[in-house]
Amino acid sequence: MDRYQAMTTFVRVVETGSFSAAARQLHVGQPAVSKIVAQLESRLQVSLLIRSTHGLTPTEAGQAFYERARNALLEADEAELAARGAGSGLSGRLRVSAATTFARLHIIPRLPAFLDAHPQLDVDILLDDRMIDLVAEGVDISLRMGALADSSAVARKLATGKRSVLATPAYLARAGMPLVPADLADHTAIVYSQLPNVWSFHRDGSAVSVSVAGRLRVSAAEGLRAAILADMGLTITSDWMFAPELESGAVTRLLPAWSLPDIDLWAVFPTGRMMTAKARQFADFVQGLME
């Protein structure tokens, strides 16, 4: 039995909670995963997993083995990278999750430079605006914007961006130009369902909150972009989401004398794992892009 393969398989089973999920991440059949775990238990002469209708949970011995095996695998990756030398690049597979629009505009078009620097590395990018379970999905690094819901998350701030009220010139020609935040209450807002519909503005130490409304709510930034570019209304979003249109003048930034809270871009790593060299270097790459 290949000890490295056995440890890798067992770690994936514990982190995903099932043989089938581990098999999908390892690109093998479920019977192969079950067989490897059974061989491992036979070799160690101890039960590593408790199997029930609710899934798989490690025994006390299984938890101890998982923690040591996980750290050993990470140390092996780091040792291999050090032995090859930093100049030879990364290898293996890196799983990244990111918001769809942000990745489409800012990451994927500039990814060739990262791939060229690491020809032995494969990158899987999961595009999803929702917060996903990094461990269950086998994600090494997640790019997230805004406040972090989990205060215990292992995270690193990569950049800080500006938020603005945006609309197209065609919408403004039809609906008029808002001059103060209170004017927004009379406008049609495209509401992003993942954010509150009360917008808070600041100027000269004072704050103003405005409730906005509109007939259209969207759950993803791609829908928000499409609605704004179709001249359907105005919205608050990060400038990152409309970077090409702000540069070309296809959208207009409104209420420039008033400021909105900035938005942070974070690299988030799975809780309970050591940060891998691959994840760390990808975070460095993204931070460099956003500077």
Rank of each mutant, 00 (worst) to 15 (best):
Q5I: 04
M7Q: 04
F10V: 08
V14A: 06
V14G: 05
F19H: 10
S20A: 14
S20C: 05
A23I: 00
Q25W: 04
H27L: 07
H27S: 13
Q30V: 01
P31R: 02
V33Q: 02
V37Y: 00
V37W: 00
A38K: 12
L40V: 00
E41D: 13
L44H: 08
I50Y: 00
T53H: 11
L56S: 03
L56H: 04
T57M: 14
P58D: 09
F65S: 05
F65L: 15
F65Q: 09
Y66T: 00
E67W: 01
A69G: 04
R70C: 01
N71Q: 02
A72L: 03
A72M: 01
A72Y: 03
L74Q: 02
E75L: 05
A76R: 11
E78S: 00
E80C: 05
E80G: 09
A83L: 11
A86W: 10
S88K: 04
G89I: 06
G89E: 07
L90I: 00
S91E: 08
R93M: 05
R93Q: 10
R93Y: 07
R95E: 02
S97N: 08
S97Y: 06
A98D: 02
A98E: 02
T100D: 03
T100L: 01
T101C: 05
R104A: 07
H106V: 13
H106S: 11
I108Q: 07
R110E: 11
L111K: 03
D116I: 08
A117F: 09
V123A: 03
V123D: 00
L126G: 00
L126K: 02
L127E: 06
V135H: 06
A136R: 15
E137M: 03
A149N: 13
A149G: 14
D150E: 15
S151N: 12
A153E: 15
V154I: 14
A155H: 15
L166W: 08
L166C: 05
T168C: 14
P169H: 14
Y171H: 13
A175N: 11
M177V: 15
M177H: 14
D183F: 04
D183W: 09
D186K: 06
A189N: 09
I190G: 15
L195P: 08
S200H: 09
S200W: 07
F201H: 09
R203W: 10
G205W: 15
V208Y: 11
S209H: 10
V210F: 12
V210E: 09
G214P: 04
G214M: 04
R215S: 13
L216K: 10
A220E: 09
I228C: 09
L229D: 12
D231L: 04
S238Y: 11
W240Q: 03
F242M: 12
A243E: 15
V251R: 10
V251D: 13
R253E: 10
A257S: 15
S259H: 11
S259F: 08
D262S: 11
I263C: 07
D264Y: 05
D264A: 15
L265Q: 09
A277L: 13
A279G: 04
A283Y: 00
Q287L: 01
G288S: 03
L289Q: 07
M290T: 11
